[in-house]
């Protein structure tokens, strides 16, 4: 298995509070990795350090063998890393369909400005077709024209997922995607993730508290506590780990 993402020695502290400490983390191509851990363990900080939203204090990040830790966020995204946010980050005021269209057009190559002028601004056929099929995949056709500001959290999370998927990423990083979804929506999410993984071979990193979803989706589970990986392995092994039970699972294990 070839490593798609390799992070070595990532440390980050905020004003003396250590969020990540000498953390190693890797994802193989096509693999699904779950990250769980107590609140404040550093899961979202790890995401942000890997993606360049927050510069880590130390450490290196390689994507597909290339150093990416000096690249700006948008470059890492264009290399094929899609993400969603724990607190939904949508483009206020735009419709659902437009979110997908933005993602489709964000990395346009060639001379997009010239094409824009020639086309008098309209989106291209192939872009519209891509948007339409993504809307269908996510089951968002009914709300396609709705501005996202009034959407339910469940729909909003799907829009974020769709936006990330539009670029056909090789690595998809999801921060608590099922948080706020109801049972049926969570089932749908699991189905979509499964579909994407098997059709596109997308690797997935999943931060999640819904252990049922984690079990269903991931191949490997990491447990983060106080900025350190306290356990890594198969879901069953990790769940059986005494330290994990104490720090994270409590009685629900």
């Amino acid at each position: 298995m070839s490593d798609l993402l390799v992070a070595r020695g990532i440390s980050k502290s905020f004003g003396g509070v250590v969020a990540l400490s000498e953390l190693d983390f890797e994802v193989a191509a096509g693999e699904a990795v779950g990250i769980v851990g107590p609140n404040g363990a550093g899961k979202t900080t790890l995401f942000n350090c890997l993606l360049g939203v927050i510069p880590p204090d130390t450490g290196t990040v390689l994507f597909d063998g290339e150093r990416i830790d000096r690249l700006p966020v948008w470059r890492r995204s264009r290399l094929g890393i899609g993400r969603t946010f724990q607190r939904v980050e949508l483009f206020h005021g735009m419709t659902v369909a437009d979110h997908l269209l933005v993602a489709a057009q964000a990395r346009a190559t060639g001379r997009p400005h010239v094409r824009d002028l020639l086309r008098r601004g309209g989106p291209g056929e192939e872009e519209m077709a891509a948007v339409a099929s993504m809307l269908a995949l996510l089951g968002l056709e009914d709300v396609a024209d709705r501005p996202v500001d009034g959407l339910s959290l469940g729909h909003a999370r799907l829009v974020e997922l769709g936006r990330a998927l539009m670029a056909a990423p090789r690595l998809l990083m999801l921060d608590e995607p099922s948080s706020g979804l109801d049972v049926r929506e969570t089932e749908r999410l699991a189905g979509i993730l499964d579909d994407v993984r098997h059709r596109q071979g997308t690797a997935v990193v999943l931060v999640e508290h819904d252990l049922e979803l984690v079990e269903e989706v991931v191949d490997r589970l990491c447990v983060l506590d106080f900025g350190k990986m306290i356990a890594v392995g198969s879901v069953d092994d990790v769940m059986a780990n005494a330290e994990v039970r104490r720090a994270y699972l409590g009685s629900s294990a």
Binding site: L51, W74, M94, L101
Partner: peptide
């Protein structure tokens, strides 16, 4: 109406989401 307008709208909507979507 075009691509640039859409990207500008995205940027004003959320800069964090924009860069994460690959917009410079």
């Amino acid at each position: 109406q075009g691509r640039m307008g859409r990207l500008l709208a995205a940027m004003r909507g959320s800069e964090l989401a924009s860069v994460s979507t690959g917009i410079d």
